[in-house]
């Protein structure tokens, strides 16, 4: 593998050099800087500096009025891990685990639902396809808060959906499906569906059906045909969608805040609370830092999976 990649890189350089030998000359260096500097400045001012600031706060001590002060300690991380004045409590840890679980669950549900949707849109008559895609995207034109409130109504006690669930014995009578972890997952799935459907649609549209024929021709039954001929081709879309869905879902604030009730808090809510109501900036910053690290770890896992499953699917990550 590494050798072939070398060959590829060399090949790419070779073509670039032969196409326009002048492009890489030093006289163009100033020109290049002029073009990329606005972007670089933007990233430094709005990403690098704030991140460094956040990281610093996470290691500072919580002051009396919530403002962070010296010295640098690991207090915030200890507190995040549950060591407070009253001994150890697992509340924050639960929040972290819950966030990961809700993210994995809702991303999986989104994949399972979006995959056939994307496929059927590509198989629909050409004039229907833009309409169907529009139907997928239109809900996201409405404010997230308003949509979450919509779900509050649909799932609240006494609503037809809640009554139906109660009559089937899924929840106690007079109870609603909202507020609950279930409502949060419903909200996340609903909210992020378009971000999975669109990249999947893009890969399904380019699907090489001949590969499916080839797999069947080479003695693969329906399931193995899917695994060996369809899945690898859709993997780039699947990974792109997973990134687009799982990262914002993991840090989601609005949906768990509105649909979850107190017991369904996610990491985003915890962080927000520390910066606002609880006035504990170092704890909030530590939470945010853990969130960033968890996200990067998640990306790393996805990248590994992508490399393992299909050669050229690292593109997205």
């Amino acid at each position: 593998m590494p050798r072939t990649q070398d060959a590829r890189t060399q090949g790419a350089f070779a073509t670039r050099a032969s196409e326009s030998p002048k492009r890489r000359e030093p006289s163009h260096f100033g020109h290049l800087m002029a073009v990329i500097s606005p972007g670089v400045i933007w990233i430094v001012v709005f990403l690098v500096l704030p991140s460094a600031y956040l990281m610093t706060i996470a290691f500072m001590t919580n002051g009396t009025y919530g403002l962070p002060r010296m010295p640098l300690t690991l207090e915030a991380f200890k507190e995040l891990a549950g060591f407070g004045f009253l001994g150890w409590s697992p509340g924050n840890l639960y929040t972290l685990i819950r966030s990961i679980w809700q993210t994995v669950l809702s991303t999986s549900l989104v994949i399972v639902m979006a995959y056939p949707i994307a496929y059927y849109i590509t198989r629909a008559p050409a004039r229907m396809r833009p309409l169907m895609l529009l139907a997928v995207v239109v809900p996201s034109w409405t404010n997230q808060v308003i949509r979450a409130i919509g779900w509050m109504n649909i799932l609240s006690p006494g609503s037809p959906v809640s009554d139906l669930a109660a009559s089937m014995g899924l929840i106690p009578a007079q109870m609603g499906l909202f507020p609950s972890k279930f409502a949060v997952v419903v909200g996340l799935v609903y909210n992020f569906m378009p971000f999975m459907v669109l990249p999947l649609y893009a890969v399904f549209e380019k699907l090489d059906y001949a590969q499916i024929d080839a797999a069947r021709d080479l003695r693969a039954g329906p399931i193995r045909t899917f695994i060996h001929a369809v899945l690898p081709q859709t993997l780039p879309g699947l990974l792109a969608g997973t990134v687009l869905v799982s990262i914002p879902a993991f840090g989601m604030y609005v949906i768990p805040e509105l649909l979850g009730g107190g017991k369904s808090m996610m990491l985003g809510n915890l962080v927000a609370r520390q910066f606002a109501a609880a006035s504990n900036w170092p704890l909030g910053a530590a939470g945010a830092l853990i969130m960033i690290i968890a996200t990067l770890l998640g990306l790393l896992v996805l990248r590994r999976m992508g490399k393992k499953l299909g050669g050229d699917s690292q593109v997205v990550l």
């Binding site: 090489d208 001949a210 590969q211 024929d213 080839a214 797999a215 069947r216 021709d217 080479l218 003695r219 693969a220 039954g221 045909t225 060996h228 001929a229 690898p232 081709q233 993997l235 499953l309 299909g310 050669g311 050229d312 699917s313």
Partner: peptide, 27 residues
């Protein structure tokens, strides 16, 4: 198709892009 002892060479080749040549032939 997958139970017939017949094999096809397709017009568009239909090789599996995620597999190397050896894996394609051995599929």
């Amino acid at each position: 198709a997958h139970k017939r002892n017949v094999n096809t060479v397709f017009q568009s080749y239909a090789l599996f892009n995620h597999l190397d040549v050896r894996e394609n032939i051995g599929f």
